[in-house]
Design a protein around this nucleic acid. Structure first.
Lengths: 219, 219
DNA sequence: CGGGGGGTCAATCAAAAGGTTGACTCCGGG
DNA sequence: CCCGGAGTCAACCTTTTGATTGACCCCCCG
């Protein structure tokens, strides 16, 4: 049986080195290539495809300072003729991140602070076409199926994130290319689901429930 | 000349492995020990001191999920009889992070996305007692000196905290036993000092600068 | 003792946010 | 094929928030 060939995508050299060292130490896994951002990842995939060296799984960070971020890169990869599975390996497990990743077509969501053996299993499973989710990610997705009425839709989470950055309704409207009226509608829905009646309380509630990251935390 | 002996402190196994692999690859640097959080770091320092094996520099992450965080750990290390230099190696270069680190007594501030050679130089320099700062960190500190910023009064911080919990002006007034008018006055002052013009932006700004804790986060 | 900063309050106006109702589209599942 | 949820938008009205101005008190510091 051949090794699982991994493409590492992370903007931090330190993290790439860590994953490389860690994964290369396992039987049955080898590093096909590395990339520091989304564009580079797509280039690497193209290059390896031409060479005939397939990639069995892409290990992708969500937060990347410059260039195309993890969500965009995942979406792009999914558009390829034969897209490899994308396993998200990131630092945060907020609803916002998880939903964005799943929407973009990721086939797994793991946290960087997971023990090495767990990461190894996730990589192998993802390469085999399985879906692997961190406990919190799994719980979130389950919950959305069992009670769809009470949980926020991706759109609502998106607006909530913008809300938390301190934008006015008008600013949110401009940024999302919808009308201010629609923003208000969404906010009313959000308030109802969170059980609050103003924007600051919504931010507090959403932060507490880890639906969004605390305001001002980088993404 | 002996190797520079490094204590790694980071809660992510992946990052520790990366730093270990990277630094161990350089001449003149060796890894004395690792720790996953502040408490563990202090224990390692104590243990190594007893053994007579000094630590020349502590390489510390600021963001650590559980246990004592990087700032607190740095402050604790500075209280030791012969504190080793603490070089902060972290992901973000926000004002709040940099200032907190410097105030805690860090002797350097580097970013994880720095190229390996730069990290190597920083480690060696810090071990030699020098101060090493990432460009943005240096710029920020310079700016602080030339431009002594208007800081919030304790009262203003208190109101900001209540604001962040989602209370309305009236509710804040009731809770602090002052009139709604006074609450408004304070908020106007706060907005001016933070450079914002509404409450959600104030929460975002204050959270980012670590003036207040993220909503719903215990002290 | 005089000035200034911090804290308190009021009145007023303008702007933003909140709540309600109703309506239209699109899409997926029974 | 119809229903319902998600998303979009508008009109309308109420409440809250933001901005400005001016005032009073207290206390510390020069």
């Amino acid at each position: 049986m051949n090794d699982v060939r991994v493409l590492l995508v992370d903007d931090h050299p330190v993290v790439r080195a860590g994953l490389k060292a860690m994964l290369a130490g396992f039987e049955g896994i080898s590093i096909a290539a590395e990339a520091a951002d989304g564009q580079a990842a797509l280039k690497e995939l193209a290059r390896l495809t031409v060479l005939g060296d397939g990639v069995d799984v892409v290990l992708m960070d969500l937060q990347m300072g410059a260039g195309m971020d993890g969500v965009a890169a995942t979406a792009e990869i999914r558009k390829l003729a034969v897209p490899p599975p994308v396993l998200i390996l990131t630092t945060y497990d907020t609803d916002a991140d998880i939903l964005a990743a799943v929407e973009a077509g990721a086939s797994g969501y793991m946290l960087k602070d997971a023990p090495p053996e767990q990461i190894r299993r996730a990589v192998v499973a993802a390469a085999a076409g399985e879906t692997v989710l961190a406990p919190r990610a799994a719980a979130l997705l389950m919950n959305r199926i069992t009670n769809p009425g009470t949980s926020l839709t991706p759109r609502e989470v998106q607006l909530l994130e913008l809300l938390a950055t301190g934008l006015s309704n008008r600013a949110i409207a401009r940024q999302t290319f919808i009308s201010e009226a629609t923003v208000k509608t969404h906010l009313v829905h959000i308030y109802g689901k969170l059980g609050v009646d103003n924007r600051t309380a919504a931010i507090a509630a959403a932060t507490q429930r880890r639906i969004i990251r605390p305001p001002g935390q980088p993404g």
